[in-house]
């Protein structure tokens, strides 16, 4: 039997849409004070923060060195500022984008 598709199907990922272009404020993480609590990752509405291996990244202390670090994907970050606002260490700074 031939399978007919009777409804329009959306097949490409929204990853094709680089919403980072919307940004006017850019969050920048200072890893030397980041305690790797993942709060910024948890609250990002754009899924623009990934958790990555941070064993080679400077850390505020040795206890957290094995934990993942949050890495912002600027292709998608819209610059809402939630991460900076919720970070308990206040180690995310929002800077104006340059031209």
């Amino acid at each position: 039997m031939v399978e007919l598709v009777l409804v329009p199907l959306a097949e490409t990922s929204s990853r094709a849409n680089h919403t980072g272009l919307w940004r006017t404020l850019k969050p920048v993480i200072d890893y030397s004070s980041c305690i790797r609590c993942e709060i910024c990752w948890k609250f990002c509405p754009d899924n623009a923060i990934n958790l990555e291996d941070g064993r080679k990244t400077p850390a505020p202390n040795q206890k957290v060195i094995a934990f993942s670090i949050p890495v912002i994907d600027y292709d998608y970050c819209k610059g809402c500022g939630i991460c900076a606002n919720e970070c308990p260490e206040k180690c995310i700074e929002m800077n104006f984008e340059e031209e």
Binding site: N17, W22, F43, P45, D46, N47, C80
Partner: peptide
């Protein structure tokens, strides 16, 4: 994650979370 980035909600949208 089953919701991908690149969606078109406003900045800081609670509904996406």
């Amino acid at each position: 994650e089953l919701m991908e980035p690149g969606h078109t909600a406003c900045q800081g949208c609670g509904a996406t979370l």
